[in-house]
Design a protein around this nucleic acid. Structure first.
Length: 898
RNA sequence: GGGCGGUUAGCUCAGAUGGUUAGAGCGUCUGCUUUACACGCAGAAGGCCGGGGGUUCGAGUCCCUCACCGCCCA
């Protein structure tokens, strides 16, 4: 084994062996509760970024843990056609070639996208393999596969036939560049510097009087059909019910009173443009104002804007309108104004609210039981679905409380084409799962399918069941793996995706899609900035895993962070994780070298190293007790989705308890290779290492497998029945009562003793190579110290070390270290006795303070009567120990002063 | 305008159900080629847990309030 762990030389080889062995494919067992998680399907043309790496690391850790626990485990991978995103990418490619989708036509364009998918669609799968993702590639799904397509159509037709899907003309968010409708969620609001224009609309009966309105979008005034003021606004009391003249257009429009108007904002008068503003649309509905569309689907002014503006691009029209308003003297002022403007999530174009004929899903209201929204609301309120961390439950519920019908149609060519057919003969339309040959109402063959496609999230909303075979009720996978166990994803798509899956999952199957939702945070750069291509601060996970190793990348992404919290990724964090992989590697190299050396000299008996039911040696009892404590804590943390905590605990145990202390202590016993105790130590080393590897495997799959293979190849596993790979071995559980608090506290005293001597050596600047003479007063711990004599001697570099008999005391000439109950005497030459006395007095003072604090606490009758008994007992014991320690220091000072 | 999160060591972050002396990584300082590891070892310094108030025998943890930063929704 090389001195340093070389990730590059092992990862791809190991991954291949796992896949070849079929470990990723679940072995279903009707008697066992399965574990199932579906991968959030990445865009089919996408490339792996750190968000994918994070989500995959977490899902893989969960999947590997459950698989090792013996649960039939399915991690189902897939990809999303990502309608608007993919169409956008291909359209850009076409533009570069000097052509467009309109030149190609719908069919040729679709074929072109499929070509693109065939070319780049596998990239991200390969990248997931590099990450070590243990997903079942034999079940890989694509949202445009026949199964999911069938599920989408079935869902649509069911909802259509129930009357919940309807077509309606309504104001929606429109992206003029993508030329499609967007859902509310696909609009991103950005704060921008703009202008607030004050425009006077003269009164119809008195052109010298009028109402001044304030707007950030003066071009939209061409579509105004009213002015609204608050009914209680005294400034406008005489205007309500009257008419004003719309400048430029010259139309007369009414002034209405509406309580939605904020009197404090602007002039307190709002121009109402029902055709181009969602709030105005609602005001218009309340007052029966006509709707005028002055901006078209192409982002240019329509004929309704008047001959001078018709055909003019909307922002050019803004300038022209302002100029004209100024010219005719109604522009009363312009002020700088900071406001938020909606942009297309995909192409960043400024979104235009427009009246348009679209398809909607009626989701009902959250407080109407039995509606889609009502069921989705109830599932979380009733805890049928648990969201981790819990605070996102409220975010989810708040969103549902304000939900509106979902605009599901998109004017795109790439996606699930809406399965509705219009009949030219009878004018009717109907929805069908299978393409019909003729009108279902009049039988005419003159039918045509709706040209719109569905919102991408409509199909991903079916993901937990559409991937498992729904609507085929006979599907074994659906029967066995639905509901999924966990849905793991980022909080940024809680509404887009998680909420839709809950809505459509319950609608289609009558059951929740998953039991738990685990939400992770966003990966930020070292400065806490969101990573984005435009900022140029993205890190490529492929580069990182080559540089640091996949295990290090995974560990860095998932350790030291709590669920739902963002994390900053830095070189330091990656280095630290890589160092940890290397630390484990080297600890293993040592243990393996011990096994090999012993085997070479015929000492290859390791006994029942796998179970190690009842170690006898104190140090072994200590490390095994610590290991069991770790095992319990890790299992508990994993059950609570606290993966970061679990990993931190393994890290601490492996590095501190095992490497820094146990291995170093074991070396002392291993010096006499022929001794029985050396064999016992070797056995414990193997036991602890092997279990630690299994604990760590879900998080660092590659290095643990590589070590595990190296280790198990060199040891006899008679009677254990070791599997061929660590990934199908069993996850450690605390199954034997090996807890040894006495050994833990005894070894703690030994470690404190070593630390105290080392500390003093450093303070006195005694070179590491120089041995020190020492004597220890044992005060009741004679047996422990006697047995640990060699360990203390070697680790603290004291020699000779005398263990004093009970009652025996050392004549005082040097330094005394109190490690209660022990006193370590270092009879150094030339110690300044006054300085030593001062040092001890300082220590005494600090001890007395602690003691006084404890005494006061225990003297408080409220504490003694109200605190839990075990807490009080704890404090009493602590006080006894402090008192004892204080007395020992006092004794030494007395000797010194004598 | 409403809501959520954050504020803990120089930096980045952990700290279930309130309970010993608040932890880690990185960084800093002092030593060390101690045969698993310098991607390392040993030692050390560094914190009125954002401010204020409250509940409690006891608060980083629970409640109220204020401030600043970030995010979501409108």
């Amino acid at each position: 084994m090389p001195r340093a762990y070389d990730a590059a030389s092992v990862e791809q080889r190991i991954y291949q062996t796992w896949w070849d062995a079929g470990y990723f494919v679940p072995r279903t067992d009707p008697d066992r509760q399965p574990f199932c998680v579906v991968m959030p399907p990445p865009n089919v043309t996408g490339e792996l970024h750190l968000g994918h790496a994070l989500t995959a690391s977490l899902q893989d850790a969960l999947a590997r843990w459950h698989r090792m626990c013996g649960d039939p485990t399915l991690w189902l991978p897939g990809k999303d056609h990502a309608g608007i995103a993919t169409q956008w990418v291909v359209e850009r490619a076409l533009a570069a070639e000097g052509t467009s989708r309109h030149d190609l036509g719908r069919e040729k364009f679709e074929e072109r996208v499929w070509e693109w998918v065939r070319l780049y669609g596998n990239t991200i799968d390969e990248q997931h393999r590099r990450l070590g993702a243990s997903c079942d590639w034999s079940r890989l799904r694509f949202t445009l596969d026949p199964g999911p397509v069938h599920a989408v159509r079935t869902t649509f037709v069911n909802l259509f036939d129930k009357g919940l899907i309807y077509r309606h003309e309504r104001i929606i968010n429109w992206c003029p560049r993508c030329a499609t409708a967007l859902s509310d969620l696909e609009v991103e609001y950005e704060e921008q510097d703009g202008k607030l224009y004050h425009i006077r609309y003269p009164s119809a009966d008195n052109p010298d009087d009028g109402v001044t309105v304030a707007t950030t979008r003066p071009e939209s005034m061409l579509g105004d059909t009213g002015v609204a003021v608050h009914p209680e606004d005294e400034r406008y009391a005489d205007k309500i019910g009257g008419m004003v003249t719309l400048p430029i257009a010259g139309r007369q429009i009414p002034v209405v009173g509406d309580t939605a108007i904020e009197m404090e904002f602007g002039t307190g008068a709002l121009k109402v443009t029902p055709g181009h503003d969602i709030v105005d649309f609602e005001i218009g509905e309340r007052h029966n104002l006509p709707i005028l569309t002055v901006i078209g689907f192409d982002g240019c002014m329509t004929d309704a804007a008047g001959p001078r503006y018709s055909g003019m691009e909307r922002f050019a029209a803004r300038d022209a309108v302002v100029a004209e308003l100024e010219a005719i003297g109604v522009l009363e002022g312009v002020e700088d104004y900071h406001h938020s403007v909606g942009h297309c999530q995909r192409c960043n174009e400024v979104v235009e609210p427009l009246i348009s004929l679209q398809w909607f899903l009626n989701v009902g209201k959250h407080d109407q039981p039995g509606t889609i929204a009502g069921n989705a609301y109830g599932a979380v309120v009733n805890r049928d679905i648990e969201i981790v961390p819990d605070r996102f439950s409220r975010v989810y519920l708040n969103w549902l409380e304000n939900i509106r019908d979902w605009c599901i149609s998109r004017q795109l060519w790439w996606g699930h084409r809406i399965p509705v057919w219009y009949c030219a003969a009878c004018g009717g339309h109907s929805a069908h799962v299978d393409d019909p040959a003729a009108c279902s109402q009049c039988g005419s063959a003159d039918i045509e399918q709706e040209s719109d496609v569905l919102d991408t999230w409509f199909s991903s909303g079916l993901w937990p069941h559409s991937t498992l075979g729904w609507p085929d009720a006979q599907s074994a996978d659906l029967e066995y793996f639905y509901p999924n166990s966990v849905l793991e994803t980022g909080y940024d798509i809680l509404f887009f995706w998680v909420a839709r899956m809950i809505m459509l999952g319950i609608e289609n199957t009558g059951d929740v899609p998953f039991r738990s939702v685990y939400l992770h945070g966003m990966v930020l750069d070292a400065q806490g900035q969101k990573m984005s291509k435009t900022r140029g601060n993205t890190l490529d996970p492929l580069d990182l895993l080559e540089q640091y190793g996949t295990d290090a990348l995974r560990f860095a992404l998932t350790t030291g962070t709590a669920p739902g919290n963002n994390l900053r990724l830095s070189d330091e964090k990656l280095e630290s994780a890589r160092n940890f992989a290397n630390k484990i590697w080297n600890a293993a190299r040592y243990v393996i070298s011990v096994v090999e050396t012993r085997a070479a000299s015929g000492n290859d008996e390791l006994g029942d190293w796998y179970h190690l039911p009842a170690p006898a040696n104190r140090e072994d009892r200590w490390i095994v007790s610590r290991l069991d404590g770790l095992t319990a804590a890790v299992n508990q943390a994993l059950s609570a989705f606290e993966l970061g905590e679990a990993q931190q605990k393994i890290y601490d145990f492996a590095w501190n308890d095992f490497c820094d202390w146990y291995i170093e202590m074991a070396k002392v016993r291993l010096r006499d290779a022929a001794s029985a105790d050396a064999g016992v130590a070797a056995t414990t080393l193997v036991h602890v290492l092997e279990r630690s590897l299994r604990l760590l495997h879900p998080f660092m799959p590659f290095v643990t497998e590589e070590i595990w293979q190296n280790l198990t190849a060199r040891i006899s596993a008679t009677g254990v029945g070791l599997p061929a790979s660590i990934m199908v071995s069993s996850y450690p559980v605390v199954d034997t009562p090996r807890s040894a608090p006495d050994a833990e506290s005894d070894v703690e005293v030994v470690m404190q003793t070593v630390r105290a001597v080392r500390n003093m050596r450093a303070q006195l600047r005694i070179p590491a190579g120089q041995k020190l003479e020492a004597a220890i007063e044992t005060n009741g711990m004679g047996a422990v110290v006697e047995e640990a004599k060699e360990v203390i001697s070697v680790l603290a570099r004291v020699e000779p070390l005398r263990v004093l008999d009970a009652g025996e005391s050392e004549a005082m000439s040097g330094i005394s270290l109190v490690v209660n109950p022990l006193v370590v005497r270092l009879p150094l030459e030339g110690v300044d006795l006054q300085a030593e006395s001062d040092r001890l007095r300082r220590e005494l003072d600090s001890r007395r303070q602690d003691e006084t604090r404890k005494e006061q606490l225990l003297a408080n009758p409220n504490f003694v009567s109200k605190a839990r008994p075990e807490v009080v007992e704890n404090e009493r014991q602590r006080l006894r120990s402090l008192t004892e320690e204080r007395q020992r220091i006092e004794d030494i000072i007395a000797q010194l002063d004598a």
